[in-house]
Design a protein around this nucleic acid. Structure first.
Length: 468
DNA sequence: TGAAATGTTGGGGCG
DNA sequence: ACGCCCCAACATTTC
């Protein structure tokens, strides 16, 4: 008797290597039918943005090639996930569905509902771990609540890394899938309508092969100097694995496994810990995609955004070189160096005093690695409204930061070519040499806007004390 | 995973 | 020789 089939419902686990859901499906005696169900509407109100979709298009194409190379396929459909699953089950006589768990609130709710509906119909539904280093529900402090500070959380998580287990090898062959209708990736309409992504292609190689290439590049060229170079936007000191990780083209366990042998891996593993922590926090505080975790900030006096100022920030025309360099790098490549992300965020939330959601929404649309957990926690961290967040008074000075982390001005020079002629010292403060034709004067004064932010935060604090 | 203001210290110039 | 001032360098405090 032939083996029965089961659906392998791929979502953001577009890989063959170290794929627990795939391996468990096979171990349970099924033939996998890999499917991708396009249903962005189910992620309201955070429907994936443009840059994210660009990456998804290419990641899906690569994943489909990967499965076909093993004699399998990836069936692509669009609609309502539950309807599509039931339809596929009827058409293929599949007996079970396997998938890898995700932690965004809307997806958790959907998956819970789907699991229940499938079980009612006698279809086995198995959600597997694999996206994170640890299941958020399994790490709690002594009082049974979630860790609200990163360091104790990381102490516990990092102690568990030794017991992560070996990554599961990719299959070398898969059974053919039955004849089923499938869309082409093109038919999902994921690529932008305007020619905005042209430069993306020179920076990124979406897909599992590109993910492993990036890991090797990082391990060979950057990991040993990571502790110092990760803060240098003028160098290739970071892993640039974020988008690959977001789409599950490589598993975080694979990364830890391949890097942990190197003595210098510690600081990078800690950054992976921050990734897990963001997902952990989102799982335990699902409202933080739209609301401040620290409720005191509900009544904070954010400024009403001036559309022109907001647009200047978005497109890198603020007159602050390092801020503009970062925002242009984002617009042109779909990515921004992490230190510069903190800095442009600090500028928006503190110097302009705009609500962090304005920044979070822009990042959501323009980052190829846009990830709801990382994005929400990152913005709340900078705004000072989150868990273990930067205190309100920690306001970056983009001039000082530029002199410290882009000392020769090469990063600014690359992304703000109007300033290329200035020296390393003047390039972070062109107004001190009379400005540069074609480049705006600073839209806000760093000193006075900083003071205004401090005053606003102080008012919030006094207000809180006034009504205990 | 800050910055700026304020405080302290110690060497050197100078009367 | 000594006190005084200046100021850089560093440390501490405050937001």
């Amino acid at each position: 008797m032939p083996r029965p089939s089961a659906l392998l419902w791929l979502r953001r686990d577009l890989r063959l290597d170290d794929h627990p859901a795939l391996q468990r499906l096979i171990a349970d005696g099924y033939n996998p039918i890999p499917v991708y169900l396009h249903a962005p509407q189910e992620q309201q109100p955070w429907v994936p943005g443009e840059a994210n979709q660009w990456w998804l298009h290419h990641s899906l194409s690569q994943a489909r090639k990967g499965f076909r190379r093993l004699n399998s396929d990836l069936i692509i459909r669009r609609g309502d996930s539950l309807d599509l699953l039931l339809e596929l089950i009827a058409q293929s006589d599949a007996k079970a569905v396997y998938w890898q768990r995700l932690y965004e609130p809307a997806i958790v709710e959907r998956d819970t509902h789907i699991k229940q509906r499938l079980k009612e119909r006698g279809i086995a539904a198995h959600s597997c771990s694999g996206h994170l280093l640890a299941e958020p529900d399994h790490l709690l402090n002594k009082t049974g609540g979630p860790y609200r500070v990163f360091t104790p959380y990381w102490r516990v998580l990092s102690a568990q890394l030794a017991q992560l287990g070996e990554p599961l090898a990719a299959p070398t062959q898969l059974p053919a899938v039955p004849k089923l209708d499938s869309l082409n990736v093109d038919q999902l309409g994921l690529l932008p309508q305007i020619n905005w992504d042209a430069e993306f292609y020179t920076h990124w190689q979406p897909g599992e092969a590109g993910a492993h290439e990036a890991l090797h590049r990082f391990a060979d060229e950057a990991l040993s100097d990571y502790d110092g170079d990760r803060d240098r936007p003028d160098r290739r000191g970071t892993s640039a694995l974020s988008a690959h990780l977001h789409f599950g083209e490589i598993s975080v366990r694979r990364i830890v496994h391949d890097l942990a042998a190197q003595d210098s891996a510690g600081p990078y593993l800690r950054e992976l810990g921050w990734r897990d922590y963001s997902h952990y926090l989102l799982r335990h505080f699902p409202q933080t995609t739209n609301q401040p975790l620290n409720q005191r900030f509900e009544s904070f006096d954010w400024s009403e955004p001036d559309p022109q100022l907001l647009s200047a920030w978005q497109r890198g025309r603020t007159g602050i070189p390092l801020v503009d360099a970062g925002m242009r790098q984002l617009w042109q490549t779909g990515w921004m160096h992490n230190r510069v992300r903190m800095l442009v965020a600090s500028f928006l939330c503190k110097n302009l005093r705009y609500h962090w959601l304005h920044g979070a929404r822009w990042f959501w649309d323009t980052l190829v690695d846009a990830d709801l957990a990382n994005n929400s926690q990152g913005w709340q961290w900078t705004a000072g409204t989150g868990v273990d967040a930067a205190p309100y008074f920690r306001i970056f000075n983009p001039v000082t930061q530029g002199q410290r982390f882009d000392p020769n001005g090469n990063y600014v020079r690359r992304w703000v070519p109007e300033l290329a002629g200035l020296s390393g010292r003047a390039i972070h403060q062109p107004w001190t040499v009379g400005g540069v034709a074609g480049y705006p004067r600073p839209l806000v004064d760093l000193k006075t806007s900083r003071q205004a932010a401090l005053d606003a935060f102080k008012a919030l604090k006094d207000n809180a004390q006034a009504r205990p």
